[in-house]
Amino acid sequence: MFESKSGILYVAGLGFFALAFVSNALVPALMYRNIPEKTVAELVTPNLRYQFEDLARRFPESFKAVWGEAPEAEAENQKWWDEKCAEALEYGHKVYVAEGCWHCHSQFVRPVANEEERFGPVSRSWEYQNRLQRPVLFGTRRVGPDLSREGGRRSNDWHAVHFFRPLDLSAASPMPEYPWFFEGSPDKPNKRGLAMMTYVQWLGSWLESYPYYEAYSPSALKKPETENTDASDSQDNAADASADQEPQ
């Protein structure tokens, strides 16, 4: 049996491979089968909407050129923002993958090496059950920091300048420049730039602790007072939305 060709073919070639597949792939797949996979539209939280609308305020011309203008009627207006936000998020994910961002930035916080202190809450399985983690973006190397709790930590302005030329904001950053996200200058992001900012601001927006700062303390975070009302609304909604998440 073991020394014959068919023995090698069936026992080693197929049998052992199948054994490994069942134990290493099928078991986790079955364990998580009850956590539903979210569609991109379901990922649009008020937190993210706030950032997306902020993009429209900061880069009005670029935003209009890419996504058009929101309809006036209230019901349609909300739907339009949600749709465009989901569209931007999905496109941003595509750019994130295409540029290989995930080879230098991980997207999971481990329960060891003080990562909880630095990056925020340890990653849970349900966080990955969505379309934008298909295939999952755990990552492989951290030349730059983990990004899974990056959303809301920095302003869209900061991200625009940083994508355009990282060295302007971070003196010794080895991160490449992405001028092709812009039409010549950081205040003119194109579709890819806007989508990338949406995607980065989405990361971690599903958590209660959003936005998570290093050495985070709740009192440091004040609701924006100068902004219009829907901004503070989204902050409130954020707390509600994250309370809805079923804890793992």
Partner: peptide, 10 residues
């Protein structure tokens, strides 16, 4: 499969 299980496959 997606999510964590896909990580195992990857």
């Amino acid at each position: 499969v997606g999510g964590t299980a896909a990580g195992a496959v990857g």
